[in-house]
Amino acid sequence: MLSFVARRTAAALGTLLLSSLLVFLAVQALPGDVATQVLGKDATPQAVAQLRGSLGLDRPAWERYADWMRGALHGDFGTSLVSGKAVGGDVAQYLGNSALVAVITILFAVTGSLLLGIVAGLYRDRWPDHLISTVSLVGMSVPEFVVATVLVLCFSVALPWFPAVVLYGPDATVGQLLPAVWLPALALAVVMAAYIVRMARTSVIDVMASEYVTTARLKGLSTWRVVTRHALPSALLPVLHVIALNVAWLLGGVAVVENVFNYPGVGKLMLSSVQNRDLPVIQAIALISAVVYVACNLAADLGAMALNPRLRTRGRT
């Protein structure tokens, strides 16, 4: 078991190192000159050269990458070219707001989709399965910004239960943001849950048709016991990775939804940073996204090991 954990952890660290290099190279390969973009086209060559020197753009790329990684390991991502503040503090503030949406989305999407997927699998080819499958296919087909727009029309215009947009800035408290969190979370949950429902349904159908489930039924065990003790642990194994990918997707999908609701989260910060060519902020958010993606996949691997005893004993045979 320890060797399994060690291998997965080493692979995760190697992936993060490669991701950080790709993020740095991709940002550096963006067309145009950062100093000219910041100062404007009317800036003098002397001012542009001075800003390039202060930003370290006149140094070799490998030195800038080493300095950036050294600072990132200590939580220092540099200084924003727009606000002049530390990137780490700004990103942490926006990231905390996005985390509020993400936590609510995960609670609704994961629990709801697992229940719906299990019901659809147990009632295969009957009306609950047809209804759940149809709704999940619609959720997979409709983009998140369309879902967000429909939710605004339904629950902000027709039924004014929730605010359509957020009027607070990134320094808003949880109490101020809480009324406006539900529609973005629901929009993301609809899209996210659709994929998990489909995978959970397929997995439950496959497991319920397996030999060991048939044997458990022949022994006279109740359907509830067969499902909870024998089917679900195996059925959840492939679903864990789908959940991990969808949780990691939240950082990308939330950018569109946050823009629709004017929510002060990390997605909105990313869009504004791209427009303003704020490279330190872009690099920080991209690296944090890679960390979230790798952490979710590592958690899925460890969860699969906990559910599947063969993974825990593979190194002993």
Results as ranks from 00 to 15, higher is better:
A185I: 03
L114T: 03
F155N: 07
T317W: 09
L307V: 04
L183V: 12
A295Q: 04
S156G: 12
R277G: 10
V227G: 11
N262A: 15
L131F: 14
Y94T: 05
H230N: 15
Q176S: 12
A172I: 06
A216M: 07
T36M: 06
W224R: 14
V213L: 07
L279W: 12
Y94K: 05
A61H: 06
V165W: 12
A86R: 08
P264N: 11
Y168P: 04
G175P: 00
Y293M: 03
R201D: 06
E63W: 13
L2H: 12
G265D: 03
R198C: 01
D171T: 13
L81A: 03
L25F: 13
L153T: 12
G169Y: 08
R316M: 10
G112Y: 06
V190H: 00
V87E: 07
G252H: 04
T228E: 10
S273A: 13
T36A: 11
T317V: 13
Y263F: 15
V226P: 02
V254F: 09
V34C: 09
L251V: 01
W182N: 09
S210H: 11
W127D: 07
A109P: 12
W62F: 15
G89F: 08
A180F: 14
T202K: 00
A26M: 09
A193R: 02
G32Y: 08
N262H: 05
L81Q: 04
G88Y: 08
R201N: 02
S272Y: 13
M199H: 12
L307H: 09
R316A: 11
S3T: 14
L30G: 06
L245M: 15
Y263H: 05
E211N: 12
A158Q: 12
T44L: 08
T202Q: 06
A306W: 15
L298E: 04
G56A: 09
L188H: 02
A26I: 11
W127E: 02
V239L: 02
P309L: 13
S222D: 15
A295C: 04
L114M: 10
P128H: 04
A235L: 09
H130Q: 11
I282Q: 01
V142S: 13
V281N: 00
M1G: 08
V119N: 13
